[in-house]
Amino acid sequence: MAGPAELRELVQTDVAQEIPKETLGPVITNAPFVYVDGTFNTRDLGLIEGSPLRPGFVHRTGTINHLTDNGKAAIAGKLGIKRIFDLRSPEERSMAPDPEIPGVENTWIQSTRPDSTPDLNMFISGVGEEGYEFMYMEVVDIYRASWKAVLEHVRDRPQDPFLVHCTAGRDRTGVISGLLLALAGASPDVVTFDYLLSRIGTEPVRQFLLGVAMAGTKAQSEEQPGFYNLCSLKAESWAAFVKGVQRDYGGFAQFVTEQLGFSEEDLAKIKSNLTKA
């Protein structure tokens, strides 16, 4: 099992390079990752090194349409998940609908408008900070109803473990995961580390996701300027997004109260439920 130092080194692997299977296997089947047959990039936010979240409550993953019967049994049984939040677009859902799992509630709320097509020109400079800030700030805006539903679940159903997912489980899912960790009092380093772990978690489908990015951006090749920055996860990109949230909303907590309509009492209860059983 890889320790924190090994994980921090592994998340730096260039997206153009393969993580050897003999290295990857033991990592994605041990904490903070959770093995669920038919999924990828699955982990428990309470098992991240230094996380203040209580283990077993908040889980994240990529698309779940390939769940096996064993995977479904693990979600409902071993993990005890009661609700799944699908953060995808209508088109993504229609192509790969979430399976029904007995005893598990599926929740999907349509976004206020379609996601923009990433402009590779915005990802050329640095490691793509400008493009990532724009993309994630848009995610925060158009998926507000989903963020609110997740936070209402935390506030009202603290005994019901839940799972959030999108397609890759790294961008939209990364934003809500970062929000929850920040509200729980996680340090910026812990929040960023969880974000970067998706480099490891998406490795089993890396080539597929590169193909999706090629098609989605209409890139002429993987060598087109900005393409690899778009497909990479860097601490600087997350930091740029956090600065954007601070600039436009005053921070995550203020976004929750002023933009999503939660009271200070609600916020205190959400924070408490994230950290205490």
Rank of each mutant, 00 (worst) to 15 (best):
L67E: 06
L233K: 05
L163V: 02
L24H: 01
G251V: 04
E258C: 00
L180F: 01
E138N: 08
L180K: 13
G128F: 11
G38E: 11
F193N: 04
G71V: 04
S146T: 13
T112F: 11
Q246I: 05
N106E: 08
I28G: 06
S187I: 04
F134D: 12
Q207M: 10
L53A: 06
L79Q: 07
E6C: 04
A184E: 06
P114V: 08
F33P: 02
S187T: 14
F255S: 01
Y249E: 02
M135P: 00
I75Q: 07
N106C: 08
N229S: 09
N229I: 01
V127T: 12
E49N: 15
N273G: 14
I75C: 13
L233V: 02
Q259A: 12
L230V: 09
A74Q: 07
R83M: 05
T117K: 15
G244L: 05
D248P: 00
L209C: 06
A277Y: 14
S146P: 02
E100T: 08
E92R: 02
G178F: 00
M122K: 14
P20K: 02
Q159K: 15
I270D: 06
I28D: 06
E6K: 11
M122G: 00
D86G: 08
T202G: 04
N70S: 08
G80C: 08
A149H: 00
F57N: 02
R60K: 08
R60C: 06
C231I: 01
A149K: 10
P55F: 04
L210C: 06
L179S: 14
T217Q: 09
D194I: 07
N41L: 12
F227S: 07
L181C: 11
K243C: 03
A182V: 09
L210K: 09
R8G: 00
I75T: 07
G216L: 10
D119R: 11
P102W: 11
A96R: 07
V154A: 12
L47F: 01
G131H: 09
E223M: 12
G25L: 13
G211H: 11
G128S: 11
L163Y: 09
D86C: 08
F40K: 03
P158E: 05
N41T: 04
H59D: 00
T23L: 14
D69H: 12
Y136G: 06
S146L: 03
E105G: 07
F33G: 04
A268E: 14
R83W: 05
D115E: 12
R172I: 03
L181R: 11
P158L: 05
E18M: 10
Y132F: 15
A5P: 01
L10N: 03
T39R: 06
R43Y: 10
L7E: 01
E100W: 02
E265P: 01
R144C: 07
Q17H: 01
L87A: 04
H153L: 02
I142R: 15
E152N: 12
H153Q: 12
V242G: 08
F227V: 03
K269Q: 15
S198N: 14
A145H: 09
A253V: 08
H165M: 09
S51D: 10
G131P: 00
R113M: 10
S198D: 09
I19E: 05
G56M: 06
T61E: 00
R157S: 13
E138C: 02
L7R: 04
